[in-house]
Structure formats: C-alpha cells, structure tokens
Design a protein around this nucleic acid. Structure first.
Lengths: 341, 341
DNA sequence: GTCAAATGAGAAAACGTTTTCTCATTGAAA
DNA sequence: TTTCAATGAGAAAACGTTTTCTCATTTGAC
C-alpha cells in the first residue's frame, strides 16, 4: 500500500497516473488546463493510493502553514480548556492545526515557545489566560504575525475577546427579580478583579439604591462566612444571593442548609461560571451564569483566521453575551433550562 | 530591523556576511570546513539580524518536523490537563512543538485531526484520554509514525503509560494502618472501571480477610450515601475511609460532619486524585493520592521523542508510582507533606 | 488550404534549508 | 621546483509542492 520509505509523493502519483508532476498538481487543485478525462484519472489514482500532499512543502511555497499557536499561562484552570476546545473546533475544518503552548508564568519559557512557533511559521497566535485583566508574561505586540487575545488582557490596539460579565450579572439578577425575590445580596470575589467590578457594577445598576455587595475571596469558605455574617447580624435577611462564582455559591448553600434555611424556598441562589462539575452536582443543582467560553474560543479562532488571510479586523475589545443556566437553586423545579436575554 | 516582506532568510544572512548560502548554513550548524574567523562573522551577523531558520524548509529536507500531535478526547476533564502540561514541558526545550487535537468522542473528527497531523509530518503521536481502560474512538495502529498512549488504553503491541493505582492505594492504606487505624472501609466508584478494580484489589491485599469495599458512582452524593448506609446500620463503625476519588471523599466528610462525627479524630479520610481545588479547600484539607499525571505526560513526551529518533523502545504498559499528599483529614495536624514509598 | 485561437500537457523556477561535491589556494614535504 | 594533502569556500542537488511559461497539437473560421 505505502511506498517503502515515507509517504507517497506527488511524484509517485504522477508516475502512476502517467502524467507529469505539474499536471498531477493541477489536476488535484482543479487549476490549469487539461482534459477532463486526465483530471479524473489523476484524482482517482490519488484516491486509490491515499495521496495527501506534504503540508511542509505546501507551506514553504505558499507562506501559509495552516497552523496557529495557542499560548496559555493557565495550565490547570478550568477556563482555558473550553476556550481551547472552541478554538480547535473553529479551525479544524478549515484545515488549520493548533500548537498548544503552556508557558506557566515564565517569560523565558514564553519566549521560547513564541520563537518556536514563529520558526514553524504559524499564521497567527491566540493568547489566552486565566484572568481577563492580567497580561501574559510576554509581550506579543512585536511579533510578525497577527495576534488575538481571548480571556486575557491585550495591548492597546489589539483585538481581544472576553465575556460580557455585566450582561451575565444582569441576566442573573433580572431573573431573580422576575421570580419575585426582593432582597438580593451579591457575594463575590476580590474587588481588584475586573470581572468582579463588572459583575458588581451591573448588580448595583439593576438593584439600585441600597444594593449590598460583599467582596471576599473565590472560595467556599468565603461563601460560608458571608452567610454566617449576614444571618448572625440583626436586620432583615435576604431572600436571594447572587454569588460571584460557583464555589462561593456552594459554600453559601452549605452554610444555609446548616442553619436550616431552605434553598430555594427561603433563599434563592445563583452562581457564576457554570462549572458543571460543581453546579450540576450540588443539591439543589445550581442556577449559574455561563460565560460561553467555548464560543469565545470559536470567535477568537475565526478572527485569527481572518487576520491570517489578510482580511481587515477592527481592533478593540469584543464582549460576548453570557447565558443563564437555570437549575433548581432559584426556585424552578423544572428540568434544566437556559436564558439568554 | 526586519526585511520588508517576511523574515530574513539564510540568503539575506549570507549576503550580509559576505559568504555563500552554503557557507552560512555550515557556519551556523558548526559543520563543514571554513576559517574560524568566517564562522564567527556569520554567527555574529546572524545574531545581529535575529536570523532564525525556517522550520518548514528544514523539515522538508530532514523529514523531521520537530512537531508531535497530542490527541485527546477529554476536553473538559481534569486529567488530561496535567498530562498535556507534562508533555509540553518535556518537549519544549528539545525544540519540539505540540499539536493539540481535541476530538471529543467523534471518530470522524479524530480521523480529520490525525490526517491533518500526518499532512503536517508530525514525528509522532501521543494519545491521551480520560479513562485508562477505554480506547480513543480512532484506531492508531496503522499510522506511519510512532504512537504512545498515556492514560488511555493502547493496542496490544503499543507503548503505554498509566499510573500505578495499586501502588497509590497501598500507599494510602498503609499510611492509615501506620497511624493506628484498624477498621478501614473503601468507598469507591463503579466496578467496571479498571482503576477501581486496581485500587480495590490493592486495598483488599493490604487489609486481608474481611475487607469492606463499597462500589458506587464517582459523586459526592455516593460518598454521603455510603456514610449514611454504614452509620445507620448496626455493627462496629469504621475508623477510617479510603475513598475512590476526592469527590466521594468530600461527600463522605460532609455526611460525617452532619452526624457529628469528627474528622480526623473519629474517622480518618483519604481520597484519590489529589484534585487540588477540592482537596486543599476541604475542611479539613484532604489527604489524597496524587497520580502524578504531569510526570506521566513528561515520560510519554520523552518516549515519543526517543521513538521519533529511531531509538528502540520496548512495547508494553509502564506504570508510574503515585504520591500520597498528606493533609489534615487523616490526623496529621502538621503542614502538607508527601509520601512516596 | 491557411491562419489564429483554443486546448492539453510538460519544463522549469521557486520556496528556504542542508549536504555533498568540486575546485582553487595554501603549506609542507620531497 | 615538483607533488600532495590540507584548507577554505562556493556550486549544485535535493526535499515536495505550486505556478508560470512554453510548446505542440487540435479546432474552427475564413
């Protein structure tokens, strides 16, 4: 089936089809002039021997490698995985492959990876991280190929993508209000996170005067502590909590249960991130805002492709809408549903 | 700094250094014969203009692309991430880049990715998955490049890597025994998982007659249910639980706390997977078996490299030892420590 | 029957390297 | 001086494609 050495080259194909190399090439690419019979014969032989052109040779000539680099400093997190999957999905059927480069937070390692990618003639680079308001440890503004940023801070004139956290928060709070909750408290992460400010800002905008926002850390512990703090101090208690992430929500639900407070009857809970493995397994399952990171990755992939093909792309930050994945923690007994508006 | 078009080629370099292309090449690669002065001059100019050879051209000639493919069907899981990081880490400083291919469970998609990788002349393929006893949805036994399997089932004569779960389980149980626990119960996942059988087999081997193993699912709920089942039936209660993963452990700890049973004073708990985000945040922090997946990835990377270079590698399954990461859930109040033997 | 245009197909150059071969110059030994 | 080996460096082929030319043949119109 296969030649003794490596794979079949177009040379072999041409010989087998009884034509010249140039004719073989033109036949396969539907270019040039030749008899229809010849073209079909070449194609048939190509199919029979399973000929596939060597991408290295093609790239050398065309100066397009159909390869892009994906740089990430988030080796363990749950954010980049969906982004990567989205990028990969968007590009695979255009024949573009993705180099994965895990650079931790090491600038030297980052440089090594970037150099390697450029040596391999990537058509573009997607930078992605674990936090929307932090830059990667390496400067990409001078690389000679297009760059797109996804879920990480880009330079001033760069193209970047992030989720619209304000939209996500609005979705969550509007939903709680629509289901009759009136005293909603926002328990979230450290205020120096951009996304925390976005979410809390939107929360305040919807609630209006007297909105209560509690900043803390991204942990279950903080969720518990927040609940303990609220319920052990005097005054009217909330009938809903909008939590900054799913772990905080988890802690809050646990603390409420320990106090004998029912979720969702007494207090409705909404989380953020829709981290399935947590949100769906909680009892009750957690309603949560999904940032649709896979779609974000898809968009980033399509954009880097457009740039690589020379199409103009307006610089700036593009925000993608979130989805609210409704589960039982906010009072809807029905099976899982989804809200986008 | 850079030429008007793309990057500087060896042609430009040769012109600038006042030598021929061949001399330039030989100078850079420390091959061929030439005056030391010439060699240094070429190297200096190369450094000055930041010359880097085009890997596509090199690959075309050498038939080595310094590129490998990493195939995974685990897009969201927490297992492949460390494996990928390990692979990447092992290869980056040998100048080898990694193609990430997320194929879900779709054979067609898998074939597309494999074809794309072969077109791009990868030097080898690492297949990795989410379960050690399941195959990827695509057959790799016929690809014309070396293949290594990591954390997924390989073919009969393949090279594969997995963690030594029996060793991990032994480590855990020995540790519990050494700290004085006598009535240890194993609460674990579904018996049709290979790793479940490995772990429970080792558990039984260490405990001997009368070992209690409870099979269930990989969820917190099962952990709770198991505890409820044990403590609500008559008879002597365990003084330690060895759980099949960290989620089960988490459920067990929660259920124990609700019953007023103290961890670790009354019951010691050890988990499996050392899923940091769960294990370290639990209260008390969870002692857990770490499969050292990053090291597994590293080994897989080094092996595929050896194969790509034509070195002989014995086929078979290689198992890597686990580590026990000791935290407070099993009675050691001291800071986090680690056991390997 | 003549000529131009259309058609079919191959030759050759190009992409950016590495490597082998060739050749002129130098230095030393005879 | 002559001869040989060693030295320094360039020419050219090769890797596997694509693309631009070129050329011979056929077709059609007059």
């Amino acid at each position: 089936m296969r030649g003794k050495g490596g794979r079949q080259t177009i040379r072999d194909l041409a010989a087998m089809a009884g034509v010249s190399i140039s004719t073989a090439s033109k036949a396969l690419n539907d270019t040039g002039r030749m008899g229809e019979e010849t073209r079909q014969r070449v194609k048939r032989v190509a199919r029979e021997i399973g000929f596939r052109p060597n991408a290295l040779a093609q790239g050398l000539l065309s100066k397009r490698s159909f390869t892009i680099g994906l740089l990430t400093n988030d080796t363990y997190g749950r954010f980049t995985l969906p982004v990567m999957a989205g990028v990969s999905e968007a590009l695979v059927d255009r024949g573009v492959s993705v180099f994965l480069c895990a650079i931790e937070d090491d600038p030297a390692l980052g440089q090594v990876h970037v150099d390697a990618m450029l040596d391999k003639q990537v058509d573009g680079i997607i930078a992605t991280g674990k936090r929307v308001d932090r830059r990667l440890p390496i400067d990409l503004s001078d690389v000679p190929v297009p760059v797109v940023y996804a879920f990480t801070e880009g330079g001033p004139d760069s193209v970047s993508f992030r989720s619209d956290d304000a939209h996500g928060a609005t979705l969550a709070v509007e939903w709680l209000k629509a289901s009759g909750r009136r005293r909603i408290v926002h328990v979230t992460g450290p205020e120096d996170f951009f996304s925390v400010r976005e979410r809390s800002g939107a929360f305040r905008a919807v609630i209006g005067n007297g909105a209560t926002v509690l900043f803390g850390e991204w942990s279950e512990t903080w969720g518990r502590d927040a609940v303990d703090g609220i319920w052990s101090s005097p005054g009217e208690k909330p009938d809903a909590l909008f939590c900054g992430n799913d772990q905080i929500a988890r802690g809050a639900v646990d603390a409420l249960r320990e106090r004998g407070i029912r979720v969702p009857e007494d207090v409705a809970i909404v989380g953020f991130d829709n981290w399935e493995i947590v949100a769906a397994q909680m009892r009750p399952p957690l309603t949560s805002v999904d940032m649709d990171l896979k779609e974000l990755g898809r968009q980033a992939g399509l954009t880097i492709l457009a740039l690589a093909e020379g199409q103009p792309v307006e610089p700036g930050v593009r925000t993608l809408p979130c989805r609210l994945v409704v589960r039982q923690s906010c009072g809807v007994g029905s099976p899982e549903t989804e809200k986008r508006r």
